[in-house]
Each structure stands twice: as structure tokens, then as C-alpha cells.
Computed example of a mutant assay.
Amino acid sequence: MNRRHVLTGALALAAASSLALSGCGSEAERRTFPVEVAATIPTTANEKGWTVTLESAHVSIGPVRFFNGRVLLSQRAPRFNFDWYSLIGGTAQAHPGHYVAGDALGEVLTVSTVNLLTGAPLGDASAVTGEYGSLEVTLAAPTASTDATGVLGGHAVRLKGTARNADGGTVRFDAVADLPAPVAGVRFEKSLGMEAGRVRIAVDLGTWLGRIDFATATDPDADGIYTFPADSQARNALVRGVEDTTSYVVTWEEGAAQ
């Protein structure tokens, strides 16, 4: 069965009666909880020696889906192995080698354009109680209705700011990125009952920007703003950062939403 359709059946069963979770001997109950997104801002230079000051950071996010499968990371490759990702701006990462999403436990289906520098609620997840292990985040291309002001320019991610290095280099940039698939296998381990609380997804912008050599940005406009061409190290490194599951830190915040 397609795992994206498991939740619909689970919620229907839960609405009629309690849902028995296989293998745990407990019963699931239908519930909702708020989901919000925010960001952590980089405070140190990235691995290429650039310190970034962000002017704006927007993302088109949703749906978000929760699963009971846990993320099991494999070991980092030995240092003597050649790092293919270094050719396009990446670094060797621990790989979620044995991740299986498992059963769907909750979802927020809305798509929202979020200013990451201020944070915003995404909506309430329709969910059931149970043992949560992971989630999947879709960074979808926006539409006229989800990005009414056009701040994303038709892209899933748009970042503006200034990067500086120790040699005195300065790059004012306007960078965009799009992903071919959802970011799956984001760690979120929580035994969730009926307690009040909310899920907070903190996007680590330091990880998004951590691999970029801003010297590879090109084609400044009349105002001196640089972009990241599709075949550049800067664009590839940004996409690798956005795809990195460790850049999404998910926590459960106890208590009623403020």
C-alpha cells in the first residue's frame, strides 16, 4: 500500500473507534497538534570561509508528514575515501541507509510561504497518538495563491544577503533553489499521547549555507546583486544544504501554543 494513503485509513478507523497499533499492544487516539517553522541563523563562517548576513529567507513549505519509522544513520565514510560531493560543493554526510518511513501518523497538508527570519505557524496536523520516529518535509514550488506577493519568484527557496570572507571579498546575493523530491527521513522521535504541545521545525540556515563558495556566484545585475547559476558550485552547494536532513531540527514543545 502507498504509505501516503495509510494515514487516511488510520484516521477513519480512529474516528469510529480506537485504532490498535500493530506490535505495541496499545491503542491510538485521534488528535491534532500545531506545527510551526522557524530558523536558526549562522553566526560563524562557513566551511569555505564566508560569513553570511541574511537580509531575507523565504521558503515554500508543505505538506509535512509524520511517520513511525526511525532514522538509522550509517557510519561516516573514512577520510581516505574520495569525497565526490566535494566537486560540486558538498561534503560526505552520514547516510540514512536503513530508513523505512513505515506507517503515517500525522500530516499537515497546507502549503505556505514562510519568512524563516520571523517564523510562522504551518497549521494543525491531523494525527493519531503513537510512537513517532521521523517526518517528511516537502519544499514545493509556490503558486499564485500560496505566494500572493511573489516573494519567492516561483522557486521553493529564496535567500538574500551579503557574504564576506577574510580576504576582503564581499558578495551581495539573491539565491534560489528547487528540490526534485521531498526531504525524507528527518529525525523526530516522540512517544505522543494526548498531552498539549506543538511541533517546532527549526531550519538551520547555517547548514543550508555551509558548503557555498560565494566566489562562484556570477552575473551581477545593475545593482551588483549576484545570482547562483544552475551549474555553479554555489547553486549545487545550496541545494545540497537544503536537502540535508540534519538542517531540520524537530522538537516537541510542551504546553498550549502561544
Score class of each variant (00 low, 15 high):
138 T>K: 15
114 V>L: 04
58 H>I: 05
123 G>I: 05
57 A>H: 02
153 G>P: 06
10 A>F: 08
35 V>S: 03
44 T>C: 07
134 S>H: 00
157 V>D: 11
69 G>M: 04
138 T>P: 12
57 A>L: 06
180 P>N: 11
44 T>P: 05
222 A>L: 12
94 A>D: 09
208 W>I: 13
32 T>S: 13
9 G>S: 04
103 D>P: 02
46 N>R: 03
3 R>D: 11
78 P>H: 07
150 G>E: 00
148 A>R: 10
98 H>L: 15
168 G>I: 10
31 R>M: 10
158 R>I: 04
170 T>C: 04
11 L>A: 01
256 A>F: 04
258 Q>M: 00
241 G>L: 03
142 P>G: 07
86 S>H: 09
115 N>I: 00
75 Q>F: 01
143 T>K: 07
219 D>S: 15
22 S>K: 08
105 L>W: 12
241 G>S: 05
192 L>F: 02
157 V>L: 15
47 E>K: 13
13 L>R: 14
176 V>N: 14
255 G>V: 00
64 V>F: 03
70 R>F: 11
116 L>S: 05
121 P>L: 06
46 N>P: 07
48 K>M: 08
111 V>T: 15
111 V>Y: 11
117 L>P: 12
206 G>Q: 00
84 W>G: 03
123 G>D: 08
50 W>Q: 04
104 A>R: 05
137 V>F: 08
241 G>E: 05
23 G>L: 03
66 F>R: 01
58 H>A: 09
3 R>N: 12
12 A>E: 15
160 K>P: 10
223 D>T: 14
25 G>S: 09
127 A>H: 06
96 P>I: 13
47 E>N: 12
166 A>E: 06
29 E>L: 02
102 G>C: 03
169 G>S: 05
192 L>D: 11
192 L>T: 04
126 S>L: 08
8 T>N: 05
182 P>S: 04
82 F>R: 06
33 F>N: 02
91 T>A: 07
34 P>W: 02
205 L>H: 10
168 G>D: 04
184 A>T: 13
99 Y>S: 02
45 A>Y: 01
57 A>K: 01
5 H>C: 10
66 F>T: 01
179 L>W: 03
13 L>Q: 15
181 A>F: 05
213 D>T: 07
224 G>D: 01
146 T>D: 13
65 R>G: 01
104 A>W: 02
111 V>F: 14
233 Q>C: 03
30 R>M: 08
94 A>C: 12
79 R>N: 11
90 G>K: 11
2 N>K: 13
87 L>Y: 12
106 G>K: 04
171 V>H: 12
68 N>F: 00
93 Q>F: 10
79 R>I: 07
1 M>L: 11
249 V>Y: 03
183 V>R: 04
52 V>S: 07
15 A>R: 11
170 T>D: 00
187 R>C: 10
242 V>I: 15
71 V>K: 03
206 G>N: 01
153 G>S: 08
210 G>F: 11
26 S>A: 14
188 F>V: 05
127 A>F: 02
129 T>N: 06
89 G>D: 14
183 V>H: 01
218 T>H: 01
31 R>Q: 12
6 V>G: 10
161 G>D: 05
83 D>G: 07
160 K>R: 15
109 L>V: 10
28 A>F: 12
256 A>T: 15
52 V>I: 15
192 L>H: 06
142 P>K: 01
45 A>W: 00
